[in-house]
Design a protein around this nucleic acid. Structure first.
Lengths: 124, 124
DNA sequence: CTTGTTGTCAACCATTTGGTTGAACACAAG
DNA sequence: CTTGTGTTCAACCAAATGGTTGACAACAAG
């Protein structure tokens, strides 16, 4: 379903347990067992969660004997942040310009306002 | 599965089509039909996508005759950004401090380094 | 009132997801 | 070599997801 990395990242963080694990890893690296500790789910389930986070590039695993310490890859967060900022800002500036546009139009072509406005926004 | 808003937001944006629709809405409001236009899926499917975005609080719908113009709610993005920044920063500062910690330890108690470090991080 | 447009609801289907248990693999310790 | 620990793999299951089609509600226009 989610083939691109951005989708994998958002999808990975859509799960509260995985967000929780990210929060834990932000404080310090932890093995799969350590990550599983606070939850009442099986270690296998946690291992799966880690795999999802790793596939998204949010977490990397190293080898330490049998253990697989998990490390949070902070840089990947920037991918998300960039995407979010991009559209948040655009929506915001559009919203701010809406006042001016509406002042000019004064409620004419109510339905069309949206599409008209889209072209206005695209001109920025 | 995703009962809290943060989960709903991430889950909503995990779908490329929905992210696409957000990008479209960032440029300007659009009706469900207008949103459906560029895709080869049914209008019903798009209607469902809009519902998901609306449930996440990312989009609001108003009434205009039969039409349901969709508006992007930019403020909700801040919820995500805050969550992301929180852990990205924490991971980053931890990473930077790692150098100092490792310099002190010089590779002793290799396995324990992670857990030790977690307590270090928690002290901040 | 009838027709066409716009959108949602309902039922259904295939696939994915998050969980389980049991087996197996890798490695440290005895 | 045998045992115990940490992790992953495989098979399975219930629930959610994204899509479909068909029906219907709401409204504009004829």
């Amino acid at each position: 379903m989610a083939d691109d990395q951005l989708s994998r990242i958002f999808s990975a963080l859509a799960d509260p347990t995985r967000r929780d694990m990210v929060a834990r890893l932000a404080v310090g690296d932890a093995t799969v067992g350590e990550l599983a500790d606070p939850y009442d789910v099986s270690v296998q389930a946690v291992s799966k969660h880690v795999k999802v986070l790793a596939d998204a590039g949010l977490v990397s695993q190293t080898k330490d004997a049998q253990r697989r310490p998990c490390h949070l890859e902070a840089e990947v967060f920037d991918l998300m942040t960039k995407w979010i900022e991009r559209y948040r800002e655009r929506a915001q500036e559009r919203y701010e310009r809406l006042d001016a546009v509406l002042a000019e139009m004064r409620g004419e072509t109510a339905t069309q306002t949206d599409t008209d406005h889209r072209e206005q926004g695209a001109a920025s």
